[in-house]
Amino acid sequence: MPEPILKLEEVSKTYRTKGSMFGGRAAGLVKALQCVSLEVLKGEIFGLVGESGSGKTTAGRLIVKLESPESGRVLLNGEVLSTLRGRRLKAYRRRVQMIFQDPYQSLNPQLSIYESVVEPITIHRLAAGRERMERVLSMIQTVGLSPPESFVNRYPHQLSGGQRQRVAIARAMVLEPDFVVADEPTSMLDASYSAKIFNIILEMRKRFGITILFITHSLAAARYLCDRIAVIYRGHLMEVGTAAEVIHHPLHPYTRALIDALPKFGLAEQIPRYNTLLEEERAGVEAVGCPFFMRCRKAHRTQCGREVPGLEPVGPGRFVACFFPGNGGGAGGKGS
């Protein structure tokens, strides 16, 4: 059993939004992550799946140390991130990379494509001269920008969306990191290019044992790439398990709702329907219990509305945060 390389221990993160200063609105609090604990094993591809605004990017930014948790700890290889300083911090910045979600913001518009990809190598003094140039060109070619010569002198605004996304991937991968947070890395790429990128990731894992936290909203992509998946909803982990288990036998009502909402193209009848999502949010109740209570068809008013279900083991390596996982119990559930 491979040991965990990354650990999140009860990590929480809250953002303050100021509201309107002049309109006299009170400051708002956004709880982006709430007491999240998880472990990523060495060499695995771990998927983080969830709705927009659920805290996925926040988790990624904590891991690459662009932000620090408000409470809880993040550990990589047993080292607590908040204690890293000086040389160890610099080494960390090389070993751990993030492919940012938005290629339009993550590339410096003043730098040509060549400069963007060569910059990290130069900063970390990994290669120089001819070797450095060859490494950059071959990385650019690898992500399918071909021939590299016709791209290297361009600036980001002279590329299409998917081409930029591939430059961002090249920039992160050129350092041959140990750990990569890939935040929706192929969201702008068609199936063929995505497959190419996935194959590169799989190849890098085989060659260098790279570990990946793969943030995606696509369950189909997660199915192909990930060993394990965690489903996150409003800052809470809802379900953790192997990709195959979570996708083919989802236990949490929210995971089931995600599968129901997939466009039916090419799936037809093969995918079961669970009907766990309420069309309209529950009215007239304050959600103090389960985060999914307001939209959960299976919810039991007294229990789910008042208590927060913990992430409990329901089988080997399988965790669910729900009082009525699977087909069991619940007000609107089918019963088992």
Binding site: D190, A191, F198, L219, A221, R223, I247, I259, G266
Partner: peptide, 12 residues
């Protein structure tokens, strides 16, 4: 080349 959830998992 479109990935789906249906059927056997195949190489992309």
């Amino acid at each position: 080349s479109y990935p789906t959830l249906a059927g056997e998992k195949r190489d992309l």
